[in-house]
C-alpha cells in the first residue's frame, strides 16, 4: 500500500469517528465513542503495517523517541499536579458532617465537578498533543530534518 492511500484511509476513519462522536453525544452514550476510538486506533496501526513506502531509519526513530520522552517528562508533572487536586477533593471530609447534611449552604464547594473535570481532561489532551508536536519539531530541527544542501 502507498503512503497516500494510507493517509486517505486515515482521513476516512477520522470522519467516521467524528460521526460516531456526534451520534454518541446526541444520544448520550459515551461507551460507543470510547469503543470506536480504540477500534479506530487499532485499525490505523494494522493498516500502517501494510504501507510499503514509509522509510524509517535510526534518525527518525531517535527524533520520535526523544520527543516522546520529553513530552512524558513534562506531562507527568502537570498530570500529577492536577490529579493531586482531584484526590484532595475526594479526601475532603468536613469537620461537622451533620451540619452539611442539614444546611445546604454550608456544604463544601465542589471544586472539580464532572463538567469542569471534562474541560480539564480536554485541556490535558490538547496539552499533550501540543507538547509532542513542539518537541518533535525541536528535535527534527536539531537532527537536521530541514537542512538543505547544494545537491
Amino acid at each position: 500500500m502507498k503512503k497516500n492511500s494510507f493517509y486517505l484511509i486515515v482521513g476516512c476513519i477520522a470522519l467516521a469517528l467524528l460521526a460516531v462522536f456526534w451520534y454518541s453525544v446526541e444520544h448520550h452514550i459515551r461507551f460507543i465513542t470510547e469503543a470506536a476510538f480504540i477500534v479506530a486506533i487499532v485499525l490505523i496501526y494494522l493498516i500502517r503495517t501494510k504501507v510499503t513506502d514509509f522509510i524509517e531509519d535510526e534518525r527518525t526513530t531517535r527524533i520520535t523517541e526523544q520527543a516522546a520522552v520529553r513530552t512524558f517528562q513534562v506531562f507527568w508533572v502537570i498530570l500529577c499536579a492536577f490529579s493531586i487536586g482531584a484526590v484532595m477533593q475526594i479526601l475532603y471530609i468536613p469537620s461537622f458532617p451533620q451540619e452539611h447534611f442539614t444546611n445546604a449552604a454550608s456544604r463544601p464547594p465542589v471544586i472539580l465537578g464532572p463538567r469542569l473535570m471534562g474541560f480539564f481532561q480536554l485541556f490535558l489532551l490538547c496539552l499533550m498533543i501540543f507538547l509532542y508536536v513542539a518537541f518533535r519539531i525541536y528535535y527534527a530541527r536539531k537532527y537536521g530534518d530541514w537542512e538543505t544542501d547544494e545537491e
Binding site: R59, Y143, D145, E147
Partner: peptide
C-alpha cells in the same frame, strides 16, 4: 549522490545530509 548512498545503506537522504553536516551522529551499525 546522497540518494544513492541512502538507498545503498537503507536510510533516508535527509539522514545522510544530517550526518554529513554533523547534525546527527550515526550509530556504530550505521
Amino acid at each position: 549522490t546522497q540518494e544513492d548512498l541512502a538507498q545503498a545503506i537503507g536510510v533516508t537522504r535527509q539522514t545522510i545530509l544530517a550526518i554529513e553536516k554533523g547534525k546527527y551522529v550515526p550509530s556504530l551499525d550505521l
